[in-house]
Design a protein around this nucleic acid. Structure first.
Length: 468
DNA sequence: AACCGTGTCTTACCCTGTAA
DNA sequence: TTACAGGGTAAGACACGGTT
């Protein structure tokens, strides 16, 4: 029998530290978690609430001591799973147990054990040798510490009309030698291996514009991108394809070594002028994508072997990501959508009959609700975009309640995102309950109800031949 | 009945420029 | 520095239908 857990897993990063999402209509902290029952059994979704006990004030360190240092580690107020390298809610013990029982965790744990068995000092030595063979002139120095502010200006100026990032970095190599070398190597190493097995350095990045993503200064040349779809199956397929390539392991080690160098370099710089890291963007973005979340900037100089393992694992992830970025079509982040149906057709042309058929209420009733709720659901206008009008918010919610339509179709119908539609529905429902319910539902005095003579119940007349 | 794949829904989080 | 607003995705959980 398959066991099922109800409600989403709690997340450690959630505001308030803990723990469960608030159910509909519950605004206060510590509100009751939701449970969902079968849609088939209940007709519509019914939510049953179960009271949860108050959580004890347990710290991440307590959990580390409880479950073992080899499995978890604490970073401030956050508990991290060492194998999965992700934050785990430390407040609820059940969350930790569930995480440890998850297939993903077991898989990561298994992979981690295998990597630990195979990562002997000889191999690490081979990585060093490999790296130095590739670029012998690259050695760590303190140059960046001194020249960092100068680099910032040069990079900012130079990025005005960039087409090929490698050409750009090679062109300014005289001015910022080490940084340019690192950037070029990083670009070359992160380029996916060609099927015919060409050497590492003869290859040029397949897409200069894609490289710009990693090299463009923050907020200047970056374009909002739609993140690629990464289904589990898709990722696994890509990973297996990538791992199957003959030169992959070797490239991975080289890449990992380069990443490690970059991390050390950035760490040294970050210690002195951390607020400038983001402005430069080159090394920061590159290392950020592969950096272990628990690896603080100050500790990068210690634990070479451990860093090496992490870097190799991270490089594998980054390799898959990079490969994916290279192979998918990227497009603007925002989808094209239309509110034509609502604004031009419904609001302008619909008559009461159509309103009744679709929204189960007349236009006048709808507008009355909008008028009542407007003070609560009117948002400020910003430069970014106009907020959703109160009419549209109410319409989304009413249509959701009045029809069995999915949230997805409704969001398409109104030209908004699905998450936005969901928020609008919950918000309007909460307001209907809090603001308007008392205006329409009045509880009479029970005694008066009993005293009043009740009219006889009215049943529909049986149809002839129905047998009832 | 158990398993598997897919669909749906919810929540968290990120991104962005401006104003307070 | 923070709040605002809405778009997007990932992840998790449940529902449900098809297959064995």
């Amino acid at each position: 029998m398959r066991t099922r857990r109800f409600g989403p897993r709690s997340r450690a990063e959630r505001p308030g530290g803990c723990c469960r999402p608030l159910p509909l209509g519950a605004g206060a902290p510590g509100a009751l978690p939701r449970r969902r029952r079968s849609r088939r059994a209940s007709g519509r979704r019914v939510q049953v609430y179960k009271k949860m006990p108050k959580s004890a004030k347990v710290t991440p360190k307590d959990r580390v001591a409880q479950f073992g240092k080899d499995k978890f580690h604490a970073d401030g107020t956050v508990l991290f799973c060492t194998a999965c390298r992700k934050a785990v809610d430390h407040v609820r013990k059940q969350s930790i147990v569930e995480h440890m029982e998850s297939a993903k965790h077991k898989q990561n744990e298994k992979r981690r054990r295998q990597d630990a068995e195979t990562a002997d000092p000889k191999q690490i030595g081979a990585v060093y040798t490999d790296y130095e063979t590739v670029k012998p002139e690259l050695k760590l120095s303190n140059e960046c510490n001194v020249e960092w502010p100068v680099y910032l200006g040069i990079v900012k100026d130079g990025f005005a009309d960039i087409e090929d990032p490698i050409q750009f970095w090679m062109a300014i190599e005289d001015r910022i030698p080490n940084l340019a070398k690192y950037a070029v190597v990083l670009l070359q190493l992160t380029t996916p291996p060609s099927p015919d097995g060409n050497s590492l350095h003869s290859q040029q990045p397949e897409s200069p514009s894609a490289c710009c993503l990693y090299l463009a200064p923050h907020g200047k040349h970056t374009m909002p991108l739609r993140r690629p779809m990464t289904g589990r199956k898709k990722q696994e397929t890509q990973r297996s394809r990538l791992l199957a390539r003959p030169d992959y392991q070797r490239r991975l080690r080289i890449y990992a070594r380069a990443q490690l160098h970059l991390m050390h370099q950035v760490s040294a710089i970050a210690l002195s002028i951390s607020n400038m890291i983001q402005q430069l963007g080159i090394l920061y973005l590159a290392t950020q994508r592969t950096q272990c979340p628990t690896l603080s900037l100050g500790s990068a100089s210690s634990g070479q072997v451990a860093d090496e393992e992490k870097a190799i694992l991270d490089a594998a992830e980054a390799g898959v990501l990079w490969h994916h970025l290279q192979t998918v079509d990227r497009q603007l982040w925002a989808h094209t959508s239309s509110t034509d149906w609502w604004e031009r057709i419904v609001l302008s042309t619909w008559e009461d009959k159509q309103w009744l058929e679709t929204f189960r209420m007349s236009r006048a009733t709808f507008m009355h609700i909008v008028t009542k709720l407007s003070p609560y659901i009117t948002r400020q206008n910003t430069v970014m975009r106009r907020p959703l009008s109160p009419e549209k918010r109410v319409a989304i919610a009413v249509l959701r309640l009045a029809t069995p339509t999915s949230l997805r179709l409704i969001s398409n119908q109104f030209g908004v995102g699905m998450a936005t539609a969901g928020v609008a529905v919950r918000e309007v429902c909460r307001l209907l309950h809090n603001v308007m319910a008392n205006s329409f539902i009045c509880l009479e005095n029970p005694q008066e109800c009993l005293d009043q003579p009740q009219p006889p119940p009215r049943y529909p007349k049986p149809r002839p031949g129905s047998g009832h």
